[in-house]
């Protein structure tokens, strides 16, 4: 199915790189590297150069940290969205927020996509997406509240729970008026999950793609990679790319990433092996 992300449409076989752009002083990976707005703007330029189709702008660190209220989140995000919109009319702008009021302000500033990474915690976000013709990511958190850490969380079947939860959110979004071509589902690795849950979701991702809803995966440098390989943040690229490859083979469509170029290469390579993408330019042995 064609993917309609706000004002941008993509073919049904397109895979998209969603580059993470943090407007935070404390996110786990970049530790505030793009907290200064001009540095965040430089990162947008860099990821666009590397081929990212989407930037995912976030104003609140996902994990524990200083409280960030809605006013502060808007302050961090909305003006920046407007600046990026003005400079990059062809870029899909996503905003990573769980708050409907922030989503509304972001859409007014030009956002195309609301990345509801906290799984419908504020149901009003879907209505905002509908009102503005924006796209929506429906994520699985197992009911975890925003910015909280899972503790002894259990599932009878984590994949079943992720499918049921995200599909229910997607169907509700369509009922409140979001274009069905504009809804993605995300198993949300690490969110409300142990490492074993995230590994199982990766292993069985095809059960999510089989729902027919386009699947977004957010794997980049996450703890399940770090715990699996016993590597700190900063040493997780190979592990990230391994799970990126498996997710591509399972049919994921959107990849939320820190490192755009290697992720793009992995996804393109896997899709060519699968026979879903032509090689860029193959001459070897054929001249």
């Amino acid at each position: 199915m064609t993917l309609q992300l706000g004002r941008h449409a993509f073919d049904d076989d397109a895979t998209l790189m969603m580059a993470i752009v943090n407007r935070t002083p404390d996110s786990f990976y970049d530790r505030g590297a793009t907290w200064a707005e001009d540095l965040a703007f430089d990162r947008v330029a860099r990821v666009v150069e590397e081929g990212a189709e989407i930037v995912d702008i976030g104003g609140v660190k996902a994990g524990h940290g200083d409280p960030v209220d809605a006013a502060e989140e808007q302050h961090r995000v909305v003006g920046f969205v407007a600046r990026v919109r003005a400079s990059y009319p062809d870029l899909v702008i996503s905003v990573d927020t769980w708050r409907a009021e922030v989503g509304r302000a972001a859409c007014e500033a030009g956002a195309d996509l609301l990345n509801d990474a906290w799984g419908g915690f504020d149901p009003g976000l879907a209505e905002v997406a509908a009102e503005f013709g924006a796209a929506l990511v429906c994520a699985h958190t197992g009911g975890l509240a925003p910015r909280s850490t899972p503790h002894r969380v259990e599932y009878g079947d984590v994949v079943r729970d992720a499918v049921d939860s995200t599909v229910a959110q997607a169907e509700r979004a369509v009922r409140v008026g979001v274009d069905p071509r504009s809804v993605l589902i995300d198993p949300a690795h690490d969110f409300g999950k142990t490492t074993f849950h995230s590994l199982e979701l990766t292993r069985r991702l095809s059960e999510m793609t089989a729902t027919g809803w386009p699947v977004l995966v957010s794997l980049s440098n996450k703890d399940f990679v770090g715990e699996t390989l016993d590597l700190p943040v900063g040493g997780r690229l190979a592990g990230t790319l391994a799970v990126t490859a498996l997710s591509a083979l399972a049919g994921a469509r959107v990849f939320r990433v820190h490192e755009v170029a290697p992720s793009r290469q992995v996804v393109d390579m896997v899709r060519s092996v699968a026979g879903w993408r032509l090689p860029a330019r193959a001459v070897r042995g054929l001249a």
């Binding site: 090689p279 860029a280 054929l286 001249a287």
Partner: peptide, 15 residues
């Protein structure tokens, strides 16, 4: 006679 002309050997950028 180059097999590069065959549909099964297409690339994104035609060499």
């Amino acid at each position: 006679a180059t097999p590069l002309l065959l549909p099964g050997n297409r690339s994104l950028r035609d060499p």
